[in-house]
């Protein structure tokens, strides 16, 4: 197990180094002047040119530049946003919390809901329940997230006036303590449900398919023939075998679950990283984009190692091979 994890960790370190290198190389390999790319404007003023040249050592040999770049990255210095003139780290750290709150809550809910419905549908294959949720999964899959967000906002916020239209808190109310938490939760309902509805079908389908496959395995027939009650076979054996592909899918969809909420953040004016990312793309704020890219790739790689550990813990074929 330790050897397997060490190997995964080593591979992930290579992936991180590769991401860092790509991030460094892209600006320098892109057509045009790297200073204008870093500055985000075509004709930066001489002071800015001088400052950027000095900061990134652009007059030095490329290998020295890479060394300086690595030093900055490991110090957590991703430079300054040319628009807001704030350190990129500050900008990202302000936004990462709301994004994680939105994306991880939605991810958790979609895994729980998708897996529970998928398992039920597999046990009730070809019944009305199975048909309804299998078709609903297709409908939800085909739905653009911003459209669903707008429709939900139109219905629950504008028409029924049950929930707030946008934002993360009611700025005018100035709640504190428990009231503030309740206010955030109330603001979370629409964006979280919208994201959950869109991520849930994937988990539903994979859970249903793998549970059906596990239920038809020979060991299930053996346990049934041995007199083991259906429920015990399902709980003790089918479930553990069926859940393995779901763990793989979580790892694969981690990046999407964090950045895929960007449009939802815009629709619901959620102050997250997705919005910061899209704003930075629009304004060509390279320093911010580069910072987000690096932080994302490092955190997703770390999460992948964690999920690999979970997978290895659950599947002895991986752990002991």
């Amino acid at each position: 197990m330790a050897r397997y994890l060490l190997k995964r960790f080593f591979l992930c370190m290579i992936a991180v180094m590769f991401s860092v290198f790509i991030n460094f190389a892209l600006v320098r390999l892109a057509p045009g002047d790297p200073i204008s790319i870093m500055a985000g404007i075509e004709k930066p003023n001489p002071l800015m040119i001088e400052a950027l040249t000095k900061k990134y050592g652009l007059d030095k040999p490329i290998i020295v530049q890479f060394g300086m770049y690595l030093q900055n990255v490991f110090r957590g210095d991703y430079g300054f946003s040319y628009r807001s003139n704030l350190p990129v780290t500050t900008l990202i750290s302000e936004r990462v919390g709301p994004t994680l709150l939105l994306s991880l809550t939605s991810l958790g809910l979609s895994i729980l809901l998708g897996c529970w419905l998928g398992l039920r549908a597999a046990r009730k294959k070809d019944t009305l329940f199975d048909r309804f949720f299998s078709n609903l999964a297709y409908v939800l899959d085909a739905m653009p997230n911003f459209w669903l967000g707008l429709m939900m906002m139109l219905l629950f916020a504008s028409t029924l006036k049950l929930l707030p239209t946008a934002g993360m808190i009611d700025v005018r109310a100035g709640y504190t303590g428990f009231q503030n938490i309740l206010d955030i939760l109330k603001h979370m309902i629409l964006p979280v449900s919208c994201t959950t509805f869109l991520m849930m079908p994937g988990y539903y389908r994979i859970m249903r398919a793998s549970a059906l496959q596990a239920m038809n395995e020979d060991y299930v027939t053996l346990f049934r023939a041995a007199g083991m009650p259906r429920k015990q076979v399902f709980r003790s054996y089918v479930l553990k075998n069926a859940v393995l592909p779901v763990v793989t899918m979580i790892g694969m969809s981690l990046a999407y679950s964090i950045m895929g909420v960007a449009l939802i953040e815009i629709v619901f004016a959620w102050p997250g990283m997705g919005r910061l990312l899209l704003d930075s793309i629009n304004k060509r704020d390279y320093a911010v984009l580069s910072g987000i890219y690096l932080i994302l790739s490092i955190s997703i790689t770390a999460a992948t190692v964690l999920l690999d550990a979970v997978y290895a813990w659950m599947d002895p074929r991986i752990r002991l091979s």
Partner: peptide, 16 residues
């Protein structure tokens, strides 16, 4: 009444 089934590699749960 007991039984032995075919496909020996699948007759036991792989994760237990």
């Amino acid at each position: 009444l007991s039984a032995v089934f075919q496909k020996s590699m699948n007759s036991l749960s792989p994760v237990h």
